[in-house]
């Protein structure tokens, strides 16, 4: 299928997408890099000047950066563990014969389609409210005091919300991978005398390893930039307790109007994301060759 004419048509037809994406990413990214070396505040226009790496020095030595970096890592790490472990368990569960399995599956994956702002407000109010929330009532049934989630365990609350949203993603992908597992393999293992536990560790888990990697990498990319859940529930607080890097950059840019500082923070976020992205792209690239 490679004639000169068709190769040329191919180039022409793929060009528009590549060009617009390039403009969308490269140009703003270049501007962000440029801004990150400027003293640039929207409140004092016309005062921009080149200050070298000062923004980076400020950003990287700011206690808020360390707090938000720690929060980001905690958030990403916790959600990953919860969703991957939960995803494997739920995937195994849904792979069994169950009465009304199709409908059950729909219920389990539903949270993924809930928009983040709805997710956040439903959890914050209807479930986690210390006075009228569902959890407070359940605690009272056991004679326990109600937990004021967003005051006493703000980051945990965010982690729970975000995990609930991303658990279905892990389930969907791991279930798909489970269903592609060759039955013969399991049966051969049974013939060899392997019990369910050995089958899980020697057959199922290795088969899932690739899907797990994909879940981890893709979730990481999205979780590094969790924003709406924080924006509508805690606003990053109390203090800096729920500020992650994405939110920190947002506050610097659109609340403090410090374009230079926010840009430096943005670049730091890009670097962090790219560390993960490299692995993911390698993995997918290998897949392309097959």
């Amino acid at each position: 299928m490679s004639t000169r004419a068709s190769t040329l048509t191919g180039r022409i037809m793929s060009a528009p997408s590549i060009i617009v994406l390039f403009l969308w990413m490269a140009v703003p990214l270049g501007m962000t890099i440029y801004f990150s070396f400027l003293r640039y505040n929207l409140l004092s226009p016309g005062m921009e000047e080149w200050i070298g790496t000062l923004n980076y020095e400020f950003f990287l030595t700011d206690p808020a950066f360390f707090a938000s970096l720690a929060n980001t890592l905690l958030l990403v790490g916790s959600v990953l563990i919860i969703t991957v472990v939960g995803g494997i368990l739920l995937g195994l569960m849904l792979d069994q014969p169950i009465f009304g399995r199709g409908i059950l599956r729909l219920l389990v994956i539903a949270p993924f389609f809930i928009m983040p702002t709805v997710n956040a407000l439903v959890w914050k109010n209807l479930l986690m409210d210390p006075v009228s929330g569902m959890f407070a009532w359940i605690a009272s049934l056991f004679g326990l005091p109600a937990i004021d989630w967003f005051t006493n365990a703000p980051l945990t609350s965010i982690i729970i919300m975000v995990s609930w949203q991303w658990l279905p993603f892990a389930v969907l992908i791991l279930l798909t991978a489970l269903q592609s597992l060759d039955r013969d393999q399991k049966e051969a293992a049974q013939m060899d005398g392997a019990g369910p536990v050995s089958i899980f560790f020697y057959i199922t888990l290795p088969h899932l390893s690739r899907a797990i990697t994909v879940v981890v990498l893709i979730e990481t990319i999205f979780l590094l930039t969790v924003f709406a859940e924080i924006f509508v529930t805690t606003g990053g607080g109390p203090g800096l307790a729920t500020t992650n890097i994405a939110f920190l950059v947002y506050t610097q840019a659109l609340l403090q109007f410090d374009v230079g500082g926010a840009s430096a923070g943005g670049i730091v976020a890009v670097v962090l994301a790219n560390i993960v992205a490299i692995f993911l792209i390698r993995l997918i690239g290998k897949n392309l060759d097959n």
Binding site: W24, M25, V27, M31, T225, Y250, A253, S263, G266, V270
Partner: peptide
């Protein structure tokens, strides 16, 4: 490009 965090380009 999909892996670029939006905050990286929010300002510009």
């Amino acid at each position: 490009t999909k892996m670029m965090p939006p905050v990286g380009v929010l300002v510009p």
